[in-house]
Design a protein around this nucleic acid. Structure first.
Length: 797
DNA sequence: TTAGGGTTAG
């Protein structure tokens, strides 16, 4: 737009009082400043004096009109509008051209403003005015304005005009009201090819491939020959349905209609085959045409990436150049996802350098593709850099960076960007919601997550499966399993991810049996499990100690579904063996697995060894972990605890000294609890809360009271307690504050940043028994539901 | 003067 508007930036013109007029920056500014009352009298206005005077003026008039039409046709918006300002505006024709130049150059709001000025000035709109005005309504996605114009058509008797009706169909479809579009189409007394094509394309705008193809069939039944636009839409419809058979049917129609040579049709065919998983067919169409154009090459590059063939994508890009063609922006945009697929930062950087060398930047889509690539190649810093250097940003570029930051665990940065985005006036869409929810999930910000849920409901995003899956995940990660289940049950278009998410939700809340039942239900409903499903199912078996079932699923994964176990699946099996104390089998599994053991694998063996007090095996696992260059804070703490539990105090001191020499500091324990819409944070031995005295007092009573006896308040001086006792761990303080701040009978939910210690775990069981309330504690790995003195983890975590 | 259009970022 800036380019178009700047074309007239050097243009200065003089009105009859010889006062140079300031060049408006935007057509809208010009139009908004335009005052029909104060307008100057221009040379060419037909006054009696002028009329009496000469053919010279008539020549000027036609010359001016010629210029005006030329500017309109060439899309010189500013110049055309400036000229329009000087012209005689009594004829509808002149207004139509001015509205046309604005509409056709994306200045929809300005076009509508001009249309209203036209009416104010008493100029009648005609059959040529309305298509532009309706197009402008569609461009603004303004249904109300569109309907107002539509109702006016009845009063002026143009409601059945062919061209106007065609415009109405598109306007309604663009606004998402396909039923209104259908009504216009069905009531048309005469339809032409454009009417059919617009209707067929309208369904695509609302993502309804099936009804689009049904209309194509209807059109043929009416003996109307499809043209290239029909075919392009029909191929798009097949892609929307991901249906190779439907796409092939349309290909037959291409042959019958003798449109195989059309470049647009060829590109659409390649695109359809790529999107429907038929990359070999795409190659065939591509290779059958010797004079192939850049768009077709670009579509092939994209097709290979979509079909998980990144190296073919790179090779295609190379061949494009070898064939003497010049890659364009789209070539690069399509190529970048292949770098992410192979995780090749080097290739990504090389392409970035090429993009800079070729002068392709700034380009908003290309920059967004770069942000995405850097995010997926684990370089969030570079993704941020690109974003900060962008000349202009849109909703998609924001969404891309939010996702990139989330993918790289930079949740706080992604939340900050989300806030900035609001402040910059970008309204989050369903994809923003999907992108930001993981940040609330991982930081366990239930209250804020609920607010996003409210926003999603209000904005109408809650029929979107991606949004619902993210909400299910958020609720489960934030400890609210009931809400997670409610969202899952309310999702009427459950996909494999929906099932994986709810199965995992029950697993991390220690309800393995329910998870396994859900897995059976999922299979009964015909949803094919994928690799992630088995991670969820094996985790469920692990949390509930279902050894036999675990092995069965581990085998079924390969035999029934052809899924090779990856490191995550082995990790789950190790957790399962560790839980039941079968350490020798766990060791054997590590030895026999065909993959290189990772931190996750040795960590699992270490945790199992600690649980079963096998110091030797724990030391062996720890030795394997140390060279893996991971954050080993947890490892040292775990080893130190094991030595302490087995009375090896010398080793405890040794580990402490290693930690000091390596400057490894124990993560500060922090527990959060939400009370009355506010989040309260507690550290160990925290006395900063204004109700500290009461919190410590209640906790003291609970700890001192024998289980089952009535709790009585007995004042004690809490300051005399030992300051470093586990009695005052943050989780206990947070739970106590939750107990005294919420109604009797309700559960108390707290979240911790590190694993719960064994002492606190026992205390939570006691609290649940003494207070007869459910206590839910989320630690860095799972949720513990304490009820009647028992924990859902069955004392293994 | 009027309606529909291929490959492209989350």
């Amino acid at each position: 737009m800036a380019a178009i508007l700047s074309l007239s930036s050097s243009f200065k013109f003089v009105i009859n009082d010889n006062t140079p007029r300031r060049q408006p920056k935007r057509a809208s500014e010009f139009i908004n400043n335009y005052d029909p009352v104060k307008q100057k009298t221009f040379k060419y206005v037909k006054t009696p004096n002028f009329q009496s005077n000469s053919s010279v003026r008539k020549t000027n008039l036609s010359h001016q009109m010629e210029n005006f039409i030329s500017y309109v046709e060439r899309g010189f918006v500013d110049t055309a509008i400036q000229l329009f300002d000087e012209m005689d505006k009594t004829s509808t024709f002149v207004w139509n051209l001015a509205i046309r130049v604005l509409t056709n150059n994306g200045l929809f709001k300005e076009a509508l403003d001009l249309y209203h000025q036209m009416l104010v000035q008493g100029v009648r709109a005609d059959r040529f005015t309305f298509p532009f005005v309706i197009k402008a309504c569609g461009g603004c996605l303004d249904l109300v304005k569109g309907q107002n114009v539509h109702s006016k058509l009845f009063t002026v008797g143009l409601d059945l005009d062919l061209h106007i009706s065609n415009s109405l169909i598109l306007m309604y479809a663009k606004c998402g009201y396909i039923d209104f579009a259908e009504k216009v189409f069905d009531e048309m007394p005469v339809r032409d090819l454009v009417s059919w094509n617009t209707m067929i394309n309208g369904y695509i705008l609302v993502n309804d491939g099936l009804r689009s193809l049904e209309r194509v069939r209807g059109m043929q039944q009416h003996r109307i020959q499809p043209d290239r636009f029909t075919i392009v839409s029909a191929l798009h419809a097949s892609s929307l349905m991901c249906s190779l058979p439907k796409g092939k049917e349309v290909h037959t129609l291409v042959i019958k209609s003798e449109l195989e040579r059309n470049e647009m049709v060829q590109t659409s065919l390649i695109d359809m085959y790529g999107k429907c998983g038929g990359i070999r067919y795409a190659e065939r169409v591509f290779n059958m045409n010797s004079r192939i154009h850049v768009a077709a090459w670009n579509t092939m590059i994209h097709g290979y990436a979509l079909n998980g063939q990144p190296f073919e994508s790179f090779s295609c890009f190379r061949k494009l150049q070898e064939n003497g063609l010049k890659p364009d922006n789209v070539s690069l945009i399509n190529l970048l996802p292949s770098c992410s697929q192979v995780g090749s930062l080097l290739r990504g950087k090389a392409i970035h350098a090429y993009i800079i060398r070729m002068g392709f930047l700034p380009h908003i889509v290309l920059e967004t593709a770069l942000i995405d690539m850097y995010g997926k190649c684990e370089e969030p810093g570079l993704a941020k850099l690109i974003f900060n250097q962008m000349h202009s940003r849109n909703l998609i570029s924001h969404n891309t960076l939010i996702s990139a930051l989330g993918q790289n665990s930079q949740y706080r940065d992604s939340l900050k960007l989300f806030c900035d985005m609001w402040n910059d006036g970008f309204k989050p869409d369903a994809i923003t919601v999907t992108a930001i929810l993981p940040a609330y999930s991982e930081l366990a910000h239930l209250r804020e997550g609920k607010q996003i849920h409210g926003y999603a409901v209000k904005s109408g995003f809650c029929s979107n499966t991606f949004v619902l899956n993210s909400l299910t995940y958020m609720y489960s990660k934030c400890g609210d399993l009931v809400s997670a289940r409610d969202v899952f049950d309310g999702n009427f278009l459950k996909d494999v991810t929906s099932w994986n998410t709810i199965i995992m939700a029950y697993a991390i809340h220690g309800c393995g049996e329910i998870s396994v039942d859900l897995f059976s239900e999922m299979k009964k409903k015909g949803i094919r499990p994928n690799s992630s499903t088995f991670v969820s199912v094996l985790t469920s078996c692990s949390v509930s100690g279902m050894v036999e079932e675990g092995w069965n699923y581990f085998t079924e994964m390969k035999s029934e579904y052809g899924i090779d176990p990856c490191i995550e699946h082995y990790g789950c099996m190790l957790d399962l063996l560790g839980r039941v104390g079968d350490l020798s089998k766990a060791e054997e599994l590590i030895t026999k697995m065909p993959l290189e053991p990772t931190y996750r694998i040795w960590g699992s063996l270490l945790a199992a060894s600690r649980k079963h007090k096998n110091v030797e095996l724990a030391e062996y696992a720890a030795k394997q972990i140390l060279p893996l260059e991971h954050d080993n804070t947890g490892l040292y703490v775990l080893l130190s605890n094991l030595y302490a539990e087995t009375g090896r105090w010398e080793d405890v001191r040794r580990v402490k000294s290693i930690m000091e020499s390596q400057r490894v500091t124990k993560t500060i324990g922090l527990t959060m609890v939400d009370v009355k819409g506010k989040t309260f944070k507690f550290t160990d031995q925290d006395r900063s809360h204004e109700q500290s005295h009461l919190i410590y007092h209640v906790l003291d009573i609970i700890l001192q009271n024998p289980v089952g006896r009535l709790v009585k308040f007995k004042p004690v001086d809490f300051l005399r307690r030992k300051s470093k006792s586990a009695d005052w761990h943050s989780v206990r303080l947070a739970v106590c504050f939750g107990l005294i701040s919420t109604s009797i009978g309700t559960h108390v939910l707290v979240r911790k940043n590190v694993r719960i210690c064994e002492d606190c775990h026992d205390v939570m069981k006691k609290i649940s028994l003494v207070c007869r309330r459910e206590i839910i504690v989320g630690d860095s790995k799972i949720y513990h539901h304490f009820e009647d003195g028992q924990c859902s983890c069955r004392d293994y975590w």
